[in-house]
């Protein structure tokens, strides 16, 4: 008989090497994909690792660290690491920034998404993008030079670098975040909602007030939260614009120091491995956790509306 019948039609077989190369590449892709988790974990690990020894050292109390207002890291006789005044500094500057930025940010988001023509919208979005691109050290420089002079001449305060200055600068920095996320949230409301409103004879403002704001509530909240996250984590701008006084501010014109600025100001002087150095890392861990909570909450809030 003739040779065995050729049972199968010849399949186009890729060279083994190509298949292997593709497998290898996909492995690299997967690895890169999970790198974000690795990096976040690594950040927490390495920052905490530098901070850990002081947590268990004698004479350090976590309660004092969190709730004491006495920050005397280099005192010769009685060293105290209380960050409460710094926390209050962060909170006060952030709060003022939000009081200024939230109305403007949400107002601009509403205008962009509902009121203006496509052309104006494109222009404004470019402006907002450029605004958000200004480096924080330039904002800090503006606070230090322009804003502080303005504040001194407007209020007669002895120094221009204070809560007010930092708050205004931070507001300008977080407005772009609030606008762009807020606009996304409004855009995510289905058009059928708008059509229903218009069919009932609502004006745009009535539509915004009665329909869109309630519907986009969660997304707008997330926008504000991300603005808060940006403001809390901001370093160089507040370092330069808020002055350097470690105390609880009594008025808007008092100088303060924030958690972030404190690390930036003192890390260079703290000898590596000293308690002071480790406490600064501990402050970093605290900041990491604060922004983690803020960001997770924002994400959770956004996800909440998508489920619905």
């Amino acid at each position: 008989m003739s040779a065995e019948p050729r049972a199968r039609t010849a399949r186009a077989v890729r060279p083994r090497a190509a298949v292997l190369a593709e497998k290898a590449l996909e492995a690299v892709i997967r690895l890169s994909g999970v790198s974000a988790i690795v990096f976040v974990a690594a950040i927490f690990f390495f920052v905490l690792r530098e901070a850990a020894p002081v947590l268990f050292s004698e004479g350090f109390s976590l309660k004092q660290f969190l709730f004491s207002t006495e920050w005397y890291p280099t005192s010769a006789t009685n060293v105290r690491y209380g960050t409460f005044a710094l926390t209050v500094g962060t909170v006060s500057v952030t709060a003022l920034a939000m009081v200024l930025a939230v109305p403007f940010g949400l107002g601009a988001a509403i205008f962009l998404s509902e009121f203006c023509s496509p052309r104006v919208r494109e222009t404004l979005k470019v402006v907002i993008e450029l605004l958000s691109a200004i480096p924080s050290v330039v904002w800090g420089f503006v606070g230090l030079t322009v804003m502080s002079k303005l504040i001194v001449s407007a209020t007669g305060a002895p120094v221009g670098v204070n809560v007010l200055n930092g708050g205004i600068i931070l507001a300008l920095m977080s407005v772009p975040v609030i606008v762009s996320i807020g606009e996304d949230a409004l855009k995510a409301v289905p058009d059928s909602f708008r059509e229903a409103g218009v069919a009932l004879g609502a004006t745009r403002w009535q539509l915004v007030y009665r329909v869109l704001l309630p519907a986009a509530k969660n997304g707008l909240l997330a926008a504000v939260l991300l603005g808060v996250g940006r403001a809390v984590g901001e370093t160089m701008a507040v370092l330069m614009a808020t002055g350097h006084a470690v105390h609880i501010p009594g008025s808007l014109l008092d100088s303060v120091r924030t958690l972030t600025a404190n690390i930036a100001a003192e890390l260079g002087e703290a000898p590596s491995g000293s308690d002071h150095y480790r406490v600064l890392f501990l402050t970093g861990t605290l900041l990491f956790l604060i922004t983690l909570v803020v960001n997770l909450t924002a994400d959770f809030v956004v996800r909440g509306i998508r489920r619905k």
């Binding site: 974000a36 530098e50 984590g233 690390i263 890390l267 803020v294 960001n295 997770l296």
Partner: peptide, 22 residues
């Protein structure tokens, strides 16, 4: 992974500095 990306974007720059140092 998505949450990690979001959080990586939210980590304050000074914390990145501490991480880089450590």
């Amino acid at each position: 992974v998505n949450l990690a990306v979001i959080n990586l974007a939210g980590v304050p720059s000074i914390v990145h500095a501490l991480f880089g140092l450590g």
